[in-house]
Simulated scan of single mutants.
Amino acid sequence: MKAAARVAGFVGGLVVVLGVSWAAGAAVGPVVDDPVPAGHAMPAAGDDGHQEAASGEHLPGGLAVAQDGYRLVLADGVLPAGRQRVAFTVVGPDGRPVTSYDVAHEKRLHLVVVRRDLTGFRHVHPVLDRATGEWSTEVPLAAGAWRVLADFVPAGGEDLVLGADLLVPGRFAPAPAAPVTRTDTVDGDTVTVDGDLVAGEHSMLTMAVTRDGAPVTDLEPYLGAAGHLIALREGDLAYLHVHPGDGLEFGVEVPSSGTYHLFLDYAHDGAVRTAHLVLEAS
């Protein structure tokens, strides 16, 4: 009877997030797009049931909670709706919190907090407590299932992107799948993307920012570049963080066909803005 009630609630468009958390986790999990090469093991499940990527495993960024001995541990996996403190540690191969990181794109860690239906997105830079190894920041959270993605380079190591699930209890209407969207309007700016994504191939995307029909020519540097592009694959939120070459031209190689949500961060008039675009990869 309870399961039937949950299904009826979902069909009606209102979902109690804690009632569907198991279903969401079962339906959306770590995905390996290609067969595992000879000599490589499939990612092993950790003690908490999350998928772990073995060293050398070709797993898109953000799908594993642990990789190469590093693990992302949230202080709280369930938070109430509203502006909340999100805190976490990165535990290293020695079992201790990591406190030393290399700087990448002017920051020691980039954090993306995104709702599973891609209607909520924040790219922020938390503060590290060097005494405890805990990172923390505040972000606004609406009811729903969220993914926390930490992009960092442990000192002397390789770039890693680890992800963990965060649940915000409450009723919400899950958004339908988004159509292809090549134009977005942000605070009076119009952002457009030219180019196409092709799975497994290097694709060039060119972003343009205009206002009242005229090109915006006074974009300000943000984190050492003209803009930053984060691509998330619809369905499992596989993660790509791309930085431009010349201006707002981005070379992107997506791992599979499917729908990709592109979040462009750029600075203009003293404020950082985020445009949301959607492309299909053939």
Rank of each mutant, 00 (worst) to 15 (best):
R108S: 08
S257T: 15
V98Y: 00
L166C: 06
G213D: 04
A238R: 06
E158N: 12
A177T: 13
V252P: 00
G49F: 07
G46E: 08
L262A: 02
A104V: 15
G170M: 04
G19N: 04
V98A: 03
D269K: 15
W22P: 12
S203M: 08
Q51L: 15
Y239S: 02
A104W: 12
T137Q: 10
D48A: 14
L237Y: 06
D187V: 11
F250L: 03
V36Y: 00
A131V: 10
G133D: 01
L14A: 13
R182A: 10
T183P: 08
A281N: 06
L205A: 03
V191P: 00
A45I: 15
V252K: 03
D151F: 04
H261T: 08
A150Q: 04
A64R: 03
A23C: 11
L118K: 09
D194L: 15
T259D: 09
H40T: 09
P60R: 03
V272Y: 02
A173Q: 11
L162G: 00
E249N: 14
G49E: 07
L264D: 00
T89H: 13
D117K: 07
A38Q: 12
A281H: 04
A275S: 06
V180P: 02
Y70P: 00
D102H: 04
L141Y: 02
R147Y: 03
L166V: 04
G188A: 07
H50M: 15
A155C: 09
D33C: 13
G95K: 06
A131S: 11
D48S: 10
G19T: 06
P97I: 07
D246Q: 13
D34E: 12
H268E: 09
P60M: 03
